[in-house]
Structure formats: structure tokens, C-alpha cells
Design a protein around this nucleic acid. Structure first.
Lengths: 121, 121
DNA sequence: TCGGACCATCACACCTGTGTGAAGGTCCAC
DNA sequence: GTGGACCTTCACACAGGTGTGATGGTCCGA
């Protein structure tokens, strides 16, 4: 598919898709005319990237993390340098911390909403 | 305590503490000489703000959300405008989504790390 | 009373993720 | 073959969170 369709299917601007590519988060082949051509699986990939971005990870980290999240994992074992593993561990811990903080505050908001709704009955 | 101590105790630059204040996320009283003076409880507050920031919420939203997270909640019930409640619900849902995405990807990273570690035994 | 550590405000600058628009090529339907 | 819809690259712009440095005041110990 071309960039327009991918943009529509992922609710992402063309501009951003090009930006993600420039950052190495997604790849594309080129048609004879120079147009980008995407695999159907790219939809999920873009969604995943956007999720991670929205979750607060910078593109720099996402780029490092993505290969480990791909399906046939064993292929990537040889790529694992010690620094990379350290980065992953650090990032995993930060993510855990984020989840904790996020959950705690979301629950507080939730409780607040519940309390407000059951107020003045 | 003064800004330097708070900065040290929260591992946050003085610059940022002033920025958070400018954004209305934290408050300070002033000593006679103009120095900012903080309550001991401010340490937790700053940590909470940083957590939310790191979790991806912009200061604008954090400012709205914080009052609901304070202890004597009942005080804030009258403040709850419908728009504010809507904002909170939206934000709560976004946080839930973030938690899901973050957890999913963190688990994937975790699995990857486990797999790598038990490789070539 | 001097030096240094702390504080204040203000301004400029950076990075990152985005938007927007210009200038131009490709393709297809009329 | 012309118009419109799509694509390309490039560049400037912006907002938000942050760093840094200038300039100057306050306080305290040697």
C-alpha cells in the first residue's frame, strides 16, 4: 500500500510516517516511480510505534527496542550486545516504574470520579 | 526547605522546580529575603509531578488532575465542572491505554531478555 | 569585611515530535 | 492533454520540557 492508505489506516499523518522512517522505526520499499510501498503488516508496526511513543519512549529507544519485539525472536539473539541488553534492562525497569506511577494516578482519578458521581444522591 | 534542598531531595534541577511552579504544579511561600520556601510534603508532590510528566501527561493536564489526587478529596467536589470531569475521564482512559501498551511491550522485552539469558547454556 | 554558597529573575537555546506549505513529479479519469 | 489526487523532498515553524548563563541580591563563616 502507499503512504496515504497507511496514514489513513493508522490515523497518522504522512509527515509522521516519513519521520518514523527517517528515524529508522519503520521501513518501506520504493515503487518504480519513487513512491513508498508498505507491507500490510506495517499497520500494526506503526500502531506499536505510536503506542510506545505515546507511552513516553523516545524514538531513539524505540528503535533499539523494536527488533526484540518482532516475531521470530531467535534471529535477533546474535545481535544482542551487552550494552544493548543493559539498555533494555534499564528501559524495562523504567517502563515498570511508569506503569506503577500511571496505574496509581489513574486509580486515584478513577476513585475521584466514582466519589463525585455518588455525591449528592 | 529552600529550593536547593528540594532539588537535591527530588533529583530535579532548580530550573525545573521553578518551571513547575510557573506552571502551577507546585507552590511555594517566600521568605523575607525572597527565597522560595517549601514544605516537607513538597518532596512527594514533586515526585508525583515528575512521575506524571514521565508518564506522558503534559503540565496542562497534570495541573487539572492534581487537585483530585490530594488527600481531603471532599473539599474539591464543588470544583468539579462537567468539562473537567470529561477531561478526567478522557485522561483516565488514555492512561489505561498507556498502561496496556506499556505493559505489553515491557513484557515482550522481558521475555526477550529471559530468552537471551537462557541461550547458549 | 570579604569570599563563597546560595538565591532571584530573565533570556536565549536546544531537542523532539509535529504541522504546514512550497515546488515539483506521477498517474488516472475525463 | 488537462485536472485532480496522489506522491516526492525540503524547509521553516511551533510547543513543550529542559539546560545554561548573565546579572544581581542574601547570608554566613573565616
Amino acid at each position: 500500500m502507499r503512504i496515504g492508505e497507511l496514514a489513513e489506516r493508522t490515523d497518522t499523518s504522512r509527515r509522521l510516517l516519513r519521520y518514523y522512517e527517517e528515524r529508522g522505526l519503520i521501513v518501506s520499499t520504493r515503487s518504480a516511480n519513487g513512491y513508498r510501498d508498505y507491507d500490510a503488516a506495517m499497520v500494526d508496526r506503526v500502531l506499536q510505534v505510536r503506542g510506545l511513543l505515546d507511552a513516553g519512549l523516545p524514538t531513539r529507544i524505540i528503535k533499539q527496542v523494536l527488533p526484540c519485539l518482532d516475531k521470530p525472536r531467535s534471529i535477533h539473539f546474535p545481535d544482542a550486545t551487552p550494552e544493548m541488553l543493559a539498555t533494555l534492562e534499564r528501559e524495562r525497569d523504567r517502563m515498570t516504574e511508569r506503569v506503577r506511577c500511571l496505574t496509581r494516578n489513574r486509580d486515584a482519578i478513577s476513585d475521584y470520579l466514582d466519589a463525585v458521581r455518588s455525591y449528592v444522591p
